[in-house]
Nucleic acid binder design. Structure first.
Lengths: 235, 235
DNA sequence: ACAAAAGTGTTGGAACTACACCCATGT
DNA sequence: ACATGGGTGTAGTTCCAACACTTTTGT
């Protein structure tokens, strides 16, 4: 038995995170500038190596924290990528994660030391290795997930307006929704608490602010909004 | 840059497959007997080591073929498992796959050399490592997937009856459906071709046989049957 | 005053659920 | 003849999509 282990070739294991953000208008992706580039692509997903003492989830958390200072955000495994040629330097299996953060949270944390930058999903730079493929899978997964679980709120700031959430969902699915139907749908989850204040400054009239009912949200696992995963989109 | 690679600890990469089968009655799982057991659990998922020249998908295909003689079956990555303690012998990351095969196909192929056996999902033996957790994830994924893609047909023999498919879906979701509504739903996909013959021998009346319209099936990517992923079930 | 975004209700159609009886055949 | 499983239709309900006008307020 133990011999079966010894003969086997080992492999580097990397963790890469697709970090989605939302600024109230557009769906964005956080990319980092490679210190030293291996080829002409200078931007890549946030990533690092798996340590021998940590699980995959722990490693992904750690790397996200080291590079952005963010902790406790939505971070879920996407899948593993292991083409033998995907990293030309050495055979590497990468386990990809996707994270949802709101851009405002992130801006208040450190960074810049790591040369991180938000990119519009519609305007991504050339990317390292198979990172583009990872992003493609991640957006598919996000659409799939968001159709049944209210993960969209992970991307919103503490308080937000209905038109903002609608912008987010439109950005995720790359299509427009009727605002009457949308607000009915989103309110019917019972997960939103309407606040007294209005958001001012953006529109003339101002929109009512809402916050997430965290207790309900935490225990909420049911099927949800019926957005149809959209085959086309960015990418 | 290259130094960054050298310092990193490498890791064994395993591939394990959750192989679902259907015998017309019940959802089953194909397990193998470990030649030498590392602990009291003698049964495990089919698995093997990733080779340095193959991709993850290729490796999973290869291992499935080596152990069962099956090729060209539905085989899709589930996710990676990498708890540092999951394999007590040595740190191993396992990329799990799930496969859908029909039991009849499998029976006609070789095997037995590898001591493989079908188990009812309701009556699984003690399993190696975290294989039980993998199975749990796999059934969740299968439910999720089957709710929107007609993957159920992968588990059916060449020709089959509506009551058989219904049995399958009931086995997947662990609940019963109204047969009138079910047959309407399944026929409304337009993926089934009714044959002249009836299945004899099982019921007195006999049920009409159908076969899959392969051309339509191959190009079919749309949303599909609206089964709600069921939180409880076996496991 | 007007431009720009927020907010709000109704209606028709589609899809789903629930439900019960007859049919064909082997024993 | 009867027991077993196969096959079929309808009515009520719910859910969704489509649709337009009024409100607020900053300029």
């Amino acid at each position: 038995m133990l011999d079966l282990y010894k003969q086997q070739t080992k492999c580097l294991v990397a963790l890469d995170s697709i970090i989605f953000g939302f600024d109230g208008e557009e769906l964005k992706l956080l990319l980092v500038k490679r210190g030293v580039q291996t080829d002409r692509a200078t931007w890549s997903l946030m990533g690092g190596w798996l340590k021998s003492t940590e699980s995959l989830d722990e490693g992904a958390d750690r790397i996200l924290f080291e590079l952005t200072g963010l902790a406790g955000v939505f971070l879920e495994q996407l899948c593993a990528f292991g083409d033998p040629q995907r990293d030309p330097v050495e055979r590497t299996v990468s386990v990809a994660y996707y994270a949802l953060v709101n851009v405002k949270d992130y801006e208040t944390k450190i960074s810049d030391t790591h040369q991180a930058q938000w990119f519009s999903m519609h305007d991504l730079p050339e990317l390292l290795f198979d990172h583009r493929e990872m992003i493609k899978k991640a957006i598919e997964r996000l659409r799939y997930k968001a159709a049944f679980h209210p993960v969209g709120f992970e991307l919103m700031p503490e308080t937000f307006t209905i038109p903002q959430i609608q912008n987010l969902y439109e950005a995720i699915y790359g299509s427009n929704f009727d605002k009457r139907n949308f607000s009915r749908k989103i309110l019917s989850t019972g997960l939103l608490i309407k606040l007294k204040e209005k958001q001012k400054g953006f529109s003339k009239k101002g929109a009512f602010l809402y916050k997430l009912d965290n207790d309900k949200y935490k225990t909420h696992t049911d099927a949800f909004l019926n957005f149809v995963p959209n085959p086309d989109g960015f990418i």
